[in-house]
Simulated scan of single mutants.
Amino acid sequence: MWAARPILAAACTLYMAAVLGVEINGFVELAAPAFGPPDAPGAVLLITPFLVCFGGPFALVASLLLVLPTVSAARWAGTRFTGHDAWWWVPVIASVVAAAGTAALGTAWRPGPGPSALVWLTGATLLTAAALVARRTALRGGRVRHVLGWGAVAAVAVFAIGTGVFATGLVPEYRPPRVDAAVLSGSWTDGEGGTLRLAADGTAHAEGLTDHAEAYKDDAEPTAAKYRCSGRGTWSYEAGDPTTWDQRVRIRIKDCHGLGEPYGWRIGGTPDRLELGSEYGEPDAPDWYALTRR
Rank of each mutant, 00 (worst) to 15 (best):
S116G: 13
A74S: 15
T163Y: 04
L184C: 08
T82G: 10
S187N: 14
R75Y: 07
T168H: 01
Y174G: 05
V92R: 06
A98K: 00
L121G: 14
D85W: 07
A129H: 04
R140S: 15
D201A: 07
E214C: 06
G149V: 06
V158L: 11
L105R: 08
V183N: 12
R178G: 11
T189Q: 11
A74K: 03
R197K: 11
P91S: 10
A213G: 04
V183H: 12
D201N: 14
G162I: 01
V171T: 14
L105A: 13
G169E: 07
T195M: 07
F166M: 02
V156C: 11
A117C: 12
G202P: 03
L127F: 11
T128A: 05
D201R: 07
G83Y: 08
R136Q: 11
I93W: 01
L139F: 10
A154S: 09
T163I: 01
L196G: 00
E192G: 02
A117R: 09
R197L: 13
E207Y: 04
T102D: 01
P113Y: 06
L196R: 00
A98G: 06
A117F: 13
P176C: 08
D85L: 08
S185Q: 14
T163N: 09
W109T: 13
P91L: 08
E173M: 10
T128M: 07
R175Q: 13
A74G: 09
G141K: 09
W188D: 00
G142I: 05
G78H: 05
A94Y: 03
L209T: 00
G149K: 08
V90D: 01
W120A: 03
G142D: 15
S187F: 10
G186L: 04
V144N: 06
V147S: 02
V179R: 09
A117M: 14
A103W: 13
A181Y: 07
L132V: 13
S185E: 14
G142S: 14
V92E: 05
L118P: 02
G106L: 00
G202W: 07
E207H: 11
A152Q: 08
R140E: 13
A155I: 02
V119M: 15
V165L: 06
I93F: 06
G112A: 08
F159I: 07
D180H: 15
R178C: 04
T168P: 00
V158D: 00
G151P: 04
A99E: 06
A86L: 12
H84V: 10
A154K: 03
L184F: 08
A213E: 06
T128F: 02
G114R: 12
Y174V: 05
L209I: 03
A73H: 09
T195Y: 03
P176T: 07
A86Q: 13
A124D: 03
A94H: 04
G191C: 07
S116Y: 03
V92I: 15
A100E: 09
G186F: 05
V183P: 02
V165E: 02
A160P: 03
R140C: 09
W88E: 09
A155P: 01
V171K: 11
T122V: 12
R75N: 12
D180W: 14
